[in-house]
Design a protein around this nucleic acid. Structure first.
Length: 492
RNA sequence: GGCGUCGUAGAUCAAUCGGCAGAUCACCGGGCUUUCAAUCCGGAAGUUGCGGGUUCGAACCCCGUCGGCGUCACCA
């Protein structure tokens, strides 16, 4: 053994059976950060020994999400591409032969089992010393009857072959680690450092899983007695409702048909919802790790400088969407206006093209109107729906309070507002504001609200909108007057 | 059920030598404001799961107990 410190090699090795889970992203982040901190390498590998469930599409999606997060594998552009276990079968066969030769294995119904006949002890970087007696260990399958290695054999052979020094993964693998330690020993390979990370849970304590989507869709459909979406075959739908399957397509179709928001589970869900990468990574870093002081808001550079295993907690973390949202809102508040506008524009170009078309040149004004009100990049679409759709109904409470109360005081103001706006020489936020500001004083109203609130009801159907000047500028004069007329007609 | 592991405000976590239990989010009240936000000021929040023990002193060490989670596959 040399005294030279070993070069750190970490890896992220998902099985390509679905989208990248938010918990997987956290694990990848930790592995990436540890490698960066120690000037080492962060490698990727696909664990596709389950041939039935693995797909190339899933591989691409996982890669797409990792790239988006900026967690690029150092072997991403390697000549052979990212290693796949299904393409390294001779490696496992060689290891299997070696294990057979030393008498560690036996056949069982066409599969090959590994004999666990010793006590196993190992040190986990988070959970500390773990030891299990031989009587509590069972012989396990290392090669399936189909000739493929199991996860246990493949993971050990690959990690050894790729020179992985630190295995960072979810704590569900903690009890598998006895198997892996035994395999390393039997193969005469030095064991890596194991670091098991606590799980990420739902607020109710259950594990955050894709099933949550199916669960919510099913519940909502039953509670609201929703019709089956026409795009889904009735028999499949019925099976879904009878909990025969948790098909994501069905859950998504139900949600879309009924305006239901399914919980974010995958990285892609959070991207669609409009969380930015720095926010997501900051929040994920804090889920199970902390820098040891009260600092919460930091970036990747900070994480790379200070991340270590000794500050990873042992207890499972509940995913707190409110806190994530608060982080997100906070970064929007602090963003320079031009950054906010371009970030929002990019998101809208991808997900809300109808807004972009409708709002046109007013997009900058639109964006700024929602800069301090948004928790996600999708929020402005929800909050500012009225910009693209005229109200179809008026909230009765808002109507009473702002229009019909006191013998239709608000309606009278609204009529005056219409006259004023129709006669304006220029349709700009400042001009509009100045005109309305003068109007409420002329009418001897209490304050600006006397004209602004009736106008809000007319434009939005409710009593809430951004500042009135920019709002009208974006809507443009024609649309504003049309909505006032419609409102006057509907509420008189 | 066996084995393993974890329990600190509602939530995420601090308290790293056994020495005053803190931060943020959420929540509540108030100020500002044309609404909603944003922002400012203030507040509440804890038998450190529970019970015992050791100690001058316990969130921390020991024993027990309850609860959560993981695992016990020819899935990973």
């Amino acid at each position: 053994m040399s005294d030279q410190p070993q070069k750190v090699i970490t890896r992220f090795a998902p099985s390509p059976t679905g989208e990248l889970h938010i918990g997987g992203a956290r694990t990848a982040l930790f592995a990436w950060a540890y490698a960066r901190r120690h000037g080492g390498q962060f490698l990727l590998r696909f664990e596709d020994t389950d041939q039935k469930r693995s797909s190339k599409q899933a591989e691409q999606n996982i890669l797409r999400d990792l790239e988006w997060l900026g967690l690029r594998g150092d072997n991403h552009d390697a000549p052979g591409g990212i290693p796949r276990q299904s393409e390294r079968l001779d490696l496992y066969q060689a290891a299997l032969d070696r294990l057979k030769a030393v008498g560690h294995t036996y056949e069982d119904d066409g599969a090959v089992r590994f004999r666990m006949d010793r006590d196993i002890a190992f040190e986990d970087a988070v959970y500390g010393p773990i030891s299990v007696e031989a009587k509590d260990l069972e012989d396990f399958v290392i090669q399936k009857a189909d000739g493929f290695p199991t996860f246990h054999l493949a993971v050990v052979v690959d990690d050894a072959d790729m020179g992985v020094t630190h295995v960072i993964r979810g704590q569900e693998h903690l009890s598998n680690t006895t198997k892996h330690a035994a395999l390393y020993d039997a193969l005469g390979q030095p064991r890596p450092v194991w670091c098991h990370t606590p799980s990420i849970m739902n607020p109710d304590g259950s594990k955050m899983s894709k099933r949550d989507k199916a669960k919510l869709a099913r519940q909502s459909a039953q509670n609201g007695v929703w019709p089956a979406p026409s795009s889904i075959e009735p028999s499949r739908y019925q099976a879904f409702m009878d909990k025969g399957n948790d098909d994501l397509d069905i859950a998504t179709a139900i949600a879309e048909a009924n305006g239901l928001e399914l919980p974010e589970i995958y990285v892609d869900d959070f991207r669609r919802s409009g969380y930015t990468v720095p926010v997501l990574l900051n929040y994920l870093a804090l889920l199970g790790w902390n820098p040891g002081n009260d600092l919460e808001r930091f970036g990747l550079d900070y994480l790379c400088e200070y991340f270590d295993f000794d500050r990873i907690g042992k207890s499972n973390s509940k995913f707190d969407r409110d806190k994530l949202a608060a982080f997100s809102q906070d970064t929007f508040l602090q963003m320079p206006p031009e950054d906010w506008i371009s970030t929002l524009k990019a998101h809208f170009d991808e997900h809300f093209t109808n807004y972009v078309e409708k709002i046109g040149d007013g997009f900058g004004v639109f964006a700024m109107a929602y800069k301090e009100r948004s928790k996600t990049l999708s929020d402005p679409a929800e909050l500012g729906k009225f910009f693209v759709e005229a109200p179809t109904e008026y909230n009765p409470k808002a109507v009473k309070k702002n229009l019909t109360k006191n013998d239709g005081e608000g309606l009278t103001s609204l009529g005056k507002v219409r006259e004023t706006l129709a006669g304006l020489a220029e349709w700009k936020a400042e001009t509009i504001h100045a005109a309305l500001d003068a109007l409420w004083q002329t009418l001897e109203l209490k304050n600006m609200g006397g004209v602004a609130q009736p106008l809000r009801v007319a434009l939005t159907g409710n009593a809430v909108s951004p500042e009135i000047g920019p709002t009208l500028e974006i809507l443009d004069r024609g649309e504003t007057l049309r909505r006032i007329d419609a409102c006057l007609a509907a509420t008189h």
